[in-house]
Each structure stands twice: as C-alpha cells, then as structure tokens.
C-alpha cells in the first residue's frame, strides 16, 4: 500500500514537472522562432551616415536631396545621441522603404581622439536601438571626416557578434592619422586602429575618398592622413579602394555635396538608387 502511494506520488510529481517543462520550453521556442522570423524576413538594408566634428544631424540634407533628386527617393531618419546616451529622433523610415538613410549625429561633436572614442560608444547605443527597432541584419555606412573614424572604431571595438553585417563603408576625407601629414609621426589613434585592424569584418568593402583642393589635401585634412586608411583596411577587409576627387567641391566641407561623390554613392553604396523612379 505504501509502495503504491510512493509510485502514485512520483507519477503525479513527474507529470507536474513534465507539464511545467513543456509549457516553458514551448513558450521559449515560440519566442525564438518569432524573432528569427522577423530577422530572416527583414529585407531592410539601411545606409547609415555619420557626420564629422562640429556637424549636426542636418549635415547630409543636401546629399540626401541630391541622391533623391531623380525620384521620390528613400526616407530619412535623423538620430542625435546625447552625452548621456539618450536618443532624439526626427524624420521617419517610410513603410516599404528597404533602403532608408539614417543619420546618426552626436550632441557633443567636438574634435579630438578622446571624443571620437566616446562618439564610437554613443554610435553603438544608437545602433543597438536601430537594429532592435527596424530588425535589419545588414547595412552600409558613409562617414564624413571624423564620422569615418567613428565608424572604423565602432567596427574594431563594438561589433562582436555576427548577427548584423556592415557590407560597405565609404569614408569621405577621413583623417586616419588625424592632422599629421606624415606617417613618420603616427598618432595614438592611428596606432590603436592598426593594432585592432584584425577585428574588422573580413567581408567588408571599403572606399576611402580624399579631396584635393591644394597640394597638401582638401584644405583641412592632409592627403597623407586620408591615405593612412589604406594601412588600416588593406588586407584586413574584403576590398579596399582609395579614390581622390579634385576640382569644384573638393574642399573638405563640400565633399558630401560633391557630384562625383554623389555618383559614387549611387553606384557603389546604394543597391536600389531610385526605388520609386518607376512609380
């Protein structure tokens, strides 16, 4: 009689444990599958633009207008990250737009390596929000001036999982050796970037564009400092292309509006340059 009681107790306990286990594991599986479905079915491939020092979220307005000139174009979302990591958003990602432009700017847009490192961290905050909000798993990026440095530091320091991939990176007049005009004087930032270059994504295609307004560079950034990017990227990523533009609008601040660069972006960065042209 006692043995029977023990068997029944064990049976009831076993059924209870099995039931609880089944309910919690099915719930866990459904959550997993549902988030896997969202990421799998996300066809969004945004282009993230990061301005340089002293510039705000309006820095790429002209570039986006020029890119969208021939069509109704892609939507534009602007994000500014405050020093405490708080995000301010304006604009929106239009429904059905698979290739929106997202500008990520920083409230503290001062120059200097220390601040660039902080901006890379703030960019990570914005990026985490964006991937969570829009569920994309691939993107391309354009960085003007220090914006290119922020993106490079972000890739080297903060991209530690393979769930989101940066396909293409275009840097416009980005000074990889800061204001130094010779690699004989490597800056701390350049040395750090060289050390961590192995962490750059192997599948990334990089285009570094330099402006030539005078013999030494684009008027602000020395040409040698832009070209220092070759040492960081070449061999560490899938492909590295170095381009120079000269003539009208080759001055450092004018690079994002330079027609040659706009054409390059259409050709190399956008997968669907005029998505609504036929509409």
């Amino acid at each position: 009689m006692r043995k029977h009681l023990r068997v029944w107790l064990l049976l009831v306990l076993g059924l209870f444990v099995a039931g609880a286990l089944t309910v919690s594991s099915v719930q866990w599986m459904k959550t997993n599958v549902s988030s896997a479905r969202v990421v799998h079915n996300s066809r969004m491939h945004p282009v993230i633009l990061v301005p340089g020092s002293s510039a705000n979220q309006e820095r790429f307005n002209t570039l986006v207008t020029l890119l969208n000139q021939q069509a109704r174009g892609h939507s534009l979302l602007k994000v500014t990250v405050a020093e405490n990591g708080k995000l301010s958003l304006s604009g929106k990602v239009a429904a059905g737009d698979n290739e929106p432009y997202i500008v990520v700017a920083f409230a503290n847009n001062s120059d200097g390596y220390t601040n660039i490192k902080r901006q890379a961290k703030w960019f990570k905050t914005a990026f985490t929000y964006l991937t969570g909000r829009y569920h994309f798993n691939r993107f391309s990026a354009i960085g003007h001036s220090n914006g290119g440095l922020v993106l490079t530091l972000f890739l080297e320091k903060y991209v530690d999982d393979d769930t989101v991939t940066m396909n293409k990176l275009m840097t416009l007049g980005s000074p990889f050796n800061l204001e130094e005009s010779s690699l004989a004087n490597p800056t701390q930032m350049y040395t750090d970037m060289m050390k961590a270059r192995t962490k750059l994504p192997k599948s990334l295609d990089v285009i570094s564009v330099a402006g030539i307004e005078n013999a030494s560079g684009d008027g602000i950034v020395p040409l040698a400092s832009v070209e220092a990017g070759r040492n960081i990227f070449f061999g560490a990523v899938h492909s590295f292309t170095q381009l120079t533009v000269s003539g009208t609008d080759a001055q450092h601040s004018a690079l994002p509006q330079n027609q040659q660069i706009v054409d390059m972006i259409k050709q190399n960065i956008l997968s669907n340059p005029g998505r609504d042209r036929q509409q």
Partner: peptide, 18 residues
C-alpha cells in the same frame, strides 16, 4: 527548427515544429 541537443526526447518534436 533547431532545439538544444539535450532536449528531453519527447519534447524534441514538439519544439522542433514550433
């Protein structure tokens, strides 16, 4: 759908079919 290899036998089918 992939389930952990140590999933108790009778639960594999239930979880693997979502």
């Amino acid at each position: 759908f992939e389930v952990p290899p140590t999933t108790p036998g009778p639960l594999i089918a239930l979880l693997g079919t979502n």
